[in-house]
């Protein structure tokens, strides 16, 4: 078979691509959809982290990944790549950012260039899946913070001290009970007195 190797024609993306694209309802039809996605891709390259609806984020992510991988593959002296960048980036200074900032940043990486994280839904109103789309290596603080198991964090110190306090109180209770068992006859009589008192209290 004289079939071309697909991976040599199109760069392989490191993200999941759905078999069929999303239509992203728009009165202008497919053209309007592309307009929407161009805005999103531009915003992503500009701000490096954006929050939007999940469907639009996932769709735009694929175009952004493709754009960056093309830029890395061909460089800035390749006419078709330049045209693609010109088409997708509405603000023209971002073309410089793409080739001078993002290409050096992602040249050596073996991960995807973007990250898509589900964001919390609105509590009231329409339920739409929200997502945060960001470029990897952005200057913002990490969104996923799992580092809560540090023993020295203030909440952990407080809880640990409370736990120790509780244990100590239990040990004291047991120690007191042992002392009481020694004179069991007194203990029984005191219990007998306690029992009728309780219902009156409550």
């Amino acid at each position: 078979m004289n079939q071309a190797d697909v991976s040599k024609l199109v760069s392989k993306l490191r993200i999941n691509v759905l078999p069929k694209h999303r239509n992203l309802n728009n009165p202008k039809g497919p053209e309007g959809r592309i307009d929407k996605l161009r805005k999103t891709v531009t915003g992503l390259i500009k701000f490096e982290r954006i929050e939007l609806n999940y469907n639009r984020a996932d769709e735009a992510r694929q175009y952004a990944e493709r754009l960056i991988s093309e830029a890395i593959r061909h460089g800035d002296c390749h006419k078709p790549t330049m045209d693609t960048a010109n088409f997708w980036l509405l603000e023209k200074e971002l073309i410089h950012k793409l080739f001078k900032v993002l290409v050096p940043r992602y040249e050596a990486t073996n991960l995807s260039y973007t990250r898509l994280i589900s964001a919390p839904q609105q509590q009231y109103g329409r339920h739409t899946d929200k997502a945060v789309l960001e470029l990897r290596g952005n200057p913002f603080p990490d969104l996923m913070n799992y580092k809560t198991n540090n023993k020295l964090l203030i909440q952990n110190v407080l809880l640990d001290a409370a736990k120790q306090d509780y244990k100590q109180s239990k040990i004291n209770e047991i120690a007191n009970n042992i002392g009481k068992k020694g004179n069991s006859s007194l203990d029984k009589s005191s219990k007998n007195i306690e029992v009728p008192e309780k219902p009156t209290e409550s």
């Binding site: 913070n145 580092k147 540090n150 020295l152 964090l153 110190v157």
Partner: peptide
């Protein structure tokens, strides 16, 4: 959230 937050605490 620094690794050693004793003084901050």
């Amino acid at each position: 959230r620094v690794p050693e937050p004793q003084q901050v605490n």
